[in-house]
């Protein structure tokens, strides 16, 4: 599903963000990518989203080699990936309903399809009663739930969560992680980039730890615990 094969990423200023990194994430897995700031974990997200191209090696997502992807094919590829950011990235002028609907409108969904899908996804994130509200009127946790609903409304096979709890208090952060786990149980592959040690420890999922651009640990367990290596 997600395959990084000897991937190196060197930025124009000479910084090596990833150095010969390889890992494979199978369909339906829940994986944490952890590491300190500047370790290279965000570069992994950028490579998956095609925001950056690797300097060396291959990134394969759902069998697509991202190096072969043309600019005009990019939108269709991105529709297969749900994405949630630390800063939620909701459209401030649109209601919760319209923010989610937008992700369906871009792929030319009919009004009927939109009307059918949004109540389901809003109920999944527990925000059915906030459909008409603007993002600015919601708490951080609620905004992240809207972002999750938007990411999931098209049923993507992969969900990338880039520091999804970075702006949230611990209790809300844990609720969001529960939601991610629920989504994963429905069959979606979830890749969460975080440095929230307590959450990683609690969830007991597969953890890929990056330091200085290389993988220093890949196994099941908590952030700081000894883990079972792959």
């Amino acid at each position: 599903m997600i395959f990084f094969n000897n991937v190196t990423k060197r930025y124009d200023n000479g910084t090596v963000a990833l150095d010969d990194v390889s890992f494979f994430i199978d369909k339906g897995e829940f994986v944490f990518i952890v590491g300190s700031s500047g370790a290279g974990k965000s570069t992994i997200t950028k490579l998956i989203l095609c925001e950056e191209q690797p300097t060396g090696g291959t990134v394969l997502i759902n069998g697509i080699n991202l190096k072969d992807l043309k600019h005009r094919e990019m939108p269709f590829y991105r529709r297969q990936i749900g994405i949630v950011f630390q800063d939620f990235r909701l459209l401030p002028n649109k209601s919760v309903y319209d923010n989610i609907a937008f992700a369906m409108q871009v792929r030319n969904a009919t009004t009927k399809e939109i009307r059918r899908a949004i109540p389901n996804v809003l109920s999944m994130v527990g925000l059915s009663h906030k459909a008409k509200v603007r993002p600015g009127q919601l708490s951080g946790g609620e905004q992240q739930r809207v972002a999750l609903a938007r990411a999931m409304v098209n049923n993507p096979p992969v969900l990338i969560a880039d520091e999804p709890t970075g702006n949230l208090d611990p209790a809300t952060a844990f609720d969001i992680m529960q939601l991610l786990e629920d989504i994963n149980k429905r069959g979606t592959t979830v890749l969460t980039v975080t440095h929230a040690r307590d959450i990683v420890d609690k969830m007991k999922k597969r953890v890929i730890e990056i330091d200085n651009g290389t993988i220093i640990r890949d196994g099941v367990g908590g952030y700081a615990n000894e883990c079972k290596s792959f």
Binding site: P75, F76, Y77, I83, R89, F102, A103, R107
Partner: peptide, 16 residues
């Protein structure tokens, strides 16, 4: 530009 950036990440084509 932020709005445009969000549109790109939900898979909007350039013309959309």
């Amino acid at each position: 530009r932020r709005e445009v950036n969000i549109m790109k990440f939900v898979g909007a084509t350039d013309w959309f």
